[in-house]
Design a protein around this nucleic acid. Structure first.
Lengths: 151, 151
DNA sequence: ATGCTATAATAATCAAAGAAAGTCAAAGTC
DNA sequence: GACTTTGACTTTCTTTGATTATTATAGCAT
């Protein structure tokens, strides 16, 4: 298949992998992707940042250092810019709940866990200063996902 | 099982032992672990420090010298911290963790729920402005308890 | 038996080397 | 002008090994 650009090709490749993954997430090495597409590693970072961000319905987890990785989760349906709603600031708005729901549906969270986390999220929503809120929720989500590894 | 890295393998092994231990704690020889995984002993120290600290819900006690050992406690399953051992201060704002711990002990929360809520609490702890923090945590606790009714 | 010492058996510390991934801004393309 | 591509530099995490600190115990002297 021919692609207009590198980003497009890499994006398509990752989405292909995601489609083939029954778990709804994939794990890749930045360096390997870069090699496969014969480009610099930071290109991959660029693709991740521009095509797999929360706005598009993806969550990315990564680790540096020895045996580092990039893990991409596909969460629920892409929320879409909700026309009329202020698109500017927090694109993460109410989507978190949907994501939790997705995780619950996939059996990654039990119903109770879903409920409890929902409560916790609402708490963060209401009590963490604006500028830190999104980062904060994202971090919690990441920790939850990471916890899954061993729990 | 295949592991990404040495740390991951050792971590998983120790957690396996912990899971199998009815007392909620285990005692190992650093050297033996190192031999089993064919690595230098300080690697084990590294794993302990980075994966079994209080922040992750573990306490570690150890002794050097003849018949030395490393003892690892898992909080939330174990009957409280090793007596006389410093919990190293920052073990997550005392009271709330204790609350959660109690709930877990009574079987009101599962281990996972305990862990997740712990994470959420830490999040609040670190991100909510000082003056609202306590009220906030209290409210979350209440909601959790209330939730118990119909969950 | 009691106390002291040397020794061997451990674990901790620390710093260096190695292995990824992230950042940022300049240069290129459309 | 906005989006892509590149690469030098930074940060984070892991692995290794040399050195240091601690403890139990065996041996010895009293």
């Amino acid at each position: 298949m021919e692609f207009r650009s590198l980003v497009a090709a890499i994006e398509a490749y990752l989405k292909q992998l995601l489609r083939e993954s029954p778990e709804g997430w994939i794990e890749v090495r930045r360096k390997e992707i870069a090699e496969r597409f014969d480009c610099v590693p930071s290109q991959v970072t660029y693709v991740i940042n521009t095509r797999f961000n929360p706005k598009h319905g993806y969550l990315v987890e990564s680790r540096r250092g020895g045996s580092g990785y990039i893990r991409i989760w596909k969460l629920g349906v892409a929320p879409g810019p909700a026309p009329g709603k202020d698109v500017s600031g927090d694109c993460l708005g109410g989507d978190f709940q949907r994501w939790l729901y997705t995780l619950a549906q996939r059996g990654i969270l039990t119903e109770r866990e879903f409920f409890l986390l929902n409560t916790a999220f609402r708490m963060l929503e209401e009590n963490v200063p604006n500028e830190r809120r999104d980062a904060c929720k994202l971090q919690l989500l990441r920790e939850i996902l990471a916890a899954g590894d061993f729990l």
